[in-house]
């Protein structure tokens, strides 16, 4: 394997697939997707509305490889300030990878290599002089599965302050209450702040993680499928919470759930196999997308 001849034959096969896809009328419009699957570069369709918003985060020609496998291809997208932006796309399209690249959690994976850059309020994230710990303190992140720390509810919320060496009881108490209120959890846990966080239900745990993420007043909040491990009622509560966070925080949320994206986000980006396909206001993406591929995905015809 790996000889020149076989590589050429693979390329030829890809071109065949691509040309076949384009030359087949009447079928569901997936020609761009097939071209992407064949390894061709496709220009992303970014609506003008997005570009007019002031950005909090700018992703600039970002490429990422796991070993030799490229997972993100030239992603260029601005994330608007104080808006909720949803990343949608089928499994394995690189949504989570992109999200984890924003706070450089992918640094922990040894085989990852990147090119391009991201800027948080103008500061280059991948600048070698950037202190990654300070960078992460400017962002909050919530993961797929609730991951409260093995300590009390109170200590969970003020964790980021504790590691900064904050010891003033007054400050900690205030931040704890504000964050828990912000995460719509205060009324449920205010009487048992010193109990273990692991005793909370799944939905409560996830809102606790959100409280923990907003405790440090992050510039951008990263949510990685925050409802995928929750039941419908807990999901509803977390979605309500995202609605409340809207306007106060810049939120970047990865989701598998089309309804969730349409309900709770201002902007939606559709990704496929590591490429950004279409990006625009959520209403536009869901009701009158520019690309037929996007329409096919958001209406559930594939993915």
């Amino acid at each position: 394997m790996g000889s020149g001849a076989s590589m050429q034959s693979v390329d030829r096969a890809r071109q065949d697939i691509a040309s076949e896809a384009v030359s087949r009328p009447g079928e569901p419009p997936q020609d761009r997707l097939i071209a992407v699957a064949a390894g061709l570069e496709v220009e992303a369709e970014v609506h003008d509305g997005v570009l007019k918003e002031p950005p909090v985060l700018e992703i600039d020609r970002f490429n990422l490889w796991y070993g030799t496998k490229q997972a993100l291809h030239r992603i260029t997208m601005p994330i608007p300030l104080n808006k909720v932006t949803a990343l949608v796309g089928p499994s394995g399209c690189g949504k989570s990878t992109l999200l984890r690249s924003v706070n450089r959690l992918n640094d922990l994976v040894q085989s990852v290599r990147i090119t391009g850059d991201m800027r948080l309020n103008g500061d280059s994230i991948y600048d070698p002089r950037m202190d990654v710990i300070e960078l992460r303190k400017r962002m909050g992140m919530v993961f797929q599965k609730p991951n409260p720390f093995p300590m009390s509810i109170y200590e969970n919320v003020v964790y980021s302050l504790r590691i900064d060496g904050e010891t003033s009881r007054g400050v900690l108490d205030e931040v704890c209450e504000m964050s828990l209120r912000g995460a719509a959890l205060w009324d449920e846990v205010k009487d048992r702040l010193q109990d273990s966080a692991l005793g909370l239900s799944g939905g409560q745990q996830q809102r606790l993680c959100i409280a923990r993420a907003i405790a440090a007043e992050p510039e951008v909040l990263l949510l990685d499928e925050p409802c995928s491990a929750l039941d419908p009622i807990a999901t509803g509560k977390v979605e309500d919470l995202i609605q409340e966070l809207r306007g106060r925080y810049s939120v970047l949320i990865v989701t598998h759930n089309m309804q969730q994206a349409s309900r709770s986000s201002d902007y939606t980006a559709f990704m496929y196999l590591g490429r950004l396909i279409e990006y625009g206001a959520t209403t536009d993406i869901f009701t009158k997308p520019v690309l037929r591929e996007t329409e096919a995905y958001v209406t559930g015809r594939f993915g």
């Binding site: 959690l105 993961f143 440090a216």
Partner: peptide, 15 residues
């Protein structure tokens, strides 16, 4: 110890 806990801590800006 689940990796998600470590990641959660790193994401909070812990060393």
């Amino acid at each position: 110890v689940p990796n998600s806990m470590r990641e959660g801590s790193y994401a909070c800006g812990a060393g």
